[in-house]
Design a binder for these strands. Sequence first.
DNA 1: CGGGACGCCTGTGAGC
DNA 2: TGCTCACAGGCGTCCC
Length: 283
Amino acid sequence: MPELPEVEVTRRSIERPLAGAVVRAAVMGKPLRWPLGCDPASLTGRAVGSVMRRGKYLWLVLGPRPGMPQDDAGGLLLHLGMSGSLGFHPASTPPPPPGPHDHFDLLTTQGTLRLHDPRRFGAVVWSAGLDQAPASTLLQRLGPEPFDPSLTPERFHARLQQRRTAIKNVLLSGDAVVGAGNIYACEALFQSGIDPRVRADRISRPRAARLLQAVRDTLARATALGGSTLRDFRDAHGMNGEFQAEAAVYGREAQPCTRCGAAIRRIVQGQRATYLCPACQKR
DNA sequence: CGGGACGCCTGTGAGC
DNA sequence: TGCTCACAGGCGTCCC
């Protein structure tokens, strides 16, 4: 489900309500992708700091336990996987009892942060720091952030030159730029007029520049619209995303291209659906 | 090493 | 109606 825009929308929706909160308890339900990595009780008493995002991961800063030195601090690395979402329930209106797909509750003085994830591909993992395992191990393989100014068209092009596989798969792998999942990779390739099957190392510099711009435009636009709600994505306050109504190719097989009217095609790459306009997107 | 397939898990919708 | 199957927004791991 969640690609970078949905994760960023989620981050923004929880940072305000959690600012200044202190953890009262943490409750782990069914196992997620990885174990929590600590005793949930050891989270109690910690102050919640900022909420950061790296790629599609969220990092929830937690201070030291009361009476403990600063190096007792750490945080929770969260991932929403394919079907995860976070809900925030203010202290004034406590959450209902956890349902069968509610797998983690962080109860704080200001409300409860709850992870809902039917498929359980998501994760909540304790780490003593972003630069320490396990967080550092998980984050180290990520490529540059799409809105990092130091990711220039030249650098992006140089990274594409190192990959001999289809550009769509390179975007999904996140090693030239993170954040585009299946929807936004398809949309950015459409916007830049590039056939998803083109080998990454065959993309010229000007086209790479256009693709990077398209990735940025697509992710920014989707974030501004609250993400895409295809089935059940909501922000932490239950708000739908609206981007899906603007998708030019994703999920539109056999429908007319919004630009040229040709029928949108669905193909499979790396066992995942790719949507493209056979007329607008060139090899 | 790069590239590609697999598997984690559950829900939904299409087709029979 | 009820069953089976394909498919779904991610990504770490394993094998070639």
